[in-house]
Write a protein that binds this DNA or RNA. Sequence first.
DNA 1: CCGTATCCGTGGCGATACTG
DNA 2: CAGTATCGCCACGGATACGG
Lengths: 121, 121
Amino acid sequence: MERNSAAPAERKCPIETVIHILGGKWKPLILWHLLDSAKRFSELEKLIPEVTQKMLAQHLRELENDRLVDRTVHPTVPPKVEYALSEYGQTMVPVLQTMCDWGEAHNRSLAEEAESAQAIS
Amino acid sequence: MERNSAAPAERKCPIETVIHILGGKWKPLILWHLLDSAKRFSELEKLIPEVTQKMLAQHLRELENDRLVDRTVHPTVPPKVEYALSEYGQTMVPVLQTMCDWGEAHNRSLAEEAESAQAIS
DNA sequence: CCGTATCCGTGGCGATACTG
DNA sequence: CAGTATCGCCACGGATACGG
């Protein structure tokens, strides 16, 4: 591991920090799904069908280490574990939102481009 | 290549799009340095000493393909090439800014944490 | 000065099987 | 249900050398 949490490197631009923290393939998706409410492990698996158990577990660990999500274990049988955006994780919401807005606009402009290209042919 | 530009995958969350576009190791840094003014290839090399020519060239090409930067060739001897944030690239500024702000705040809270840990010992 | 070409190592990620 | 363990691919990225 060692790619997350307390990287000793000096970062000229703080953007690097963000990239580093949600640099996993599924990190943003996971956070996105946790935005509205806490989710169980199996729920996240269903919400993101393409992700493997390994990566889901690994990314959740890293997000937990970075204090962005809280992991709550209910001592029941069968075991029940819930993941929620931590108070600190809430501070990431504007970042997620801004990125999401831009992504939407970008996708729309791509769609328009494809449309006008089709109009030519 | 093939990792950038016109990915056919359906993206549930537009955040994926952003991640995809500035998913390179040096992309955010490059854009960051282009924020205030256009830069030459060699200037960017000096501003980001750790980056290799290969990666700098590769990332600049991808950013150009994604319409985020404009590449201007001055037909002089010796050749002079300038890279600038395109008009479309300007729309990315708020994203960069938000991420940067969060990164700063995060680094600060990490520093405080280290400080209080030191106070104990 | 501004790149491209080639070789190669690292690690992110997937697939599968196993455990408390 | 909620994970861990192990194996292996391959794309990302670094180093070096070469071309316009």
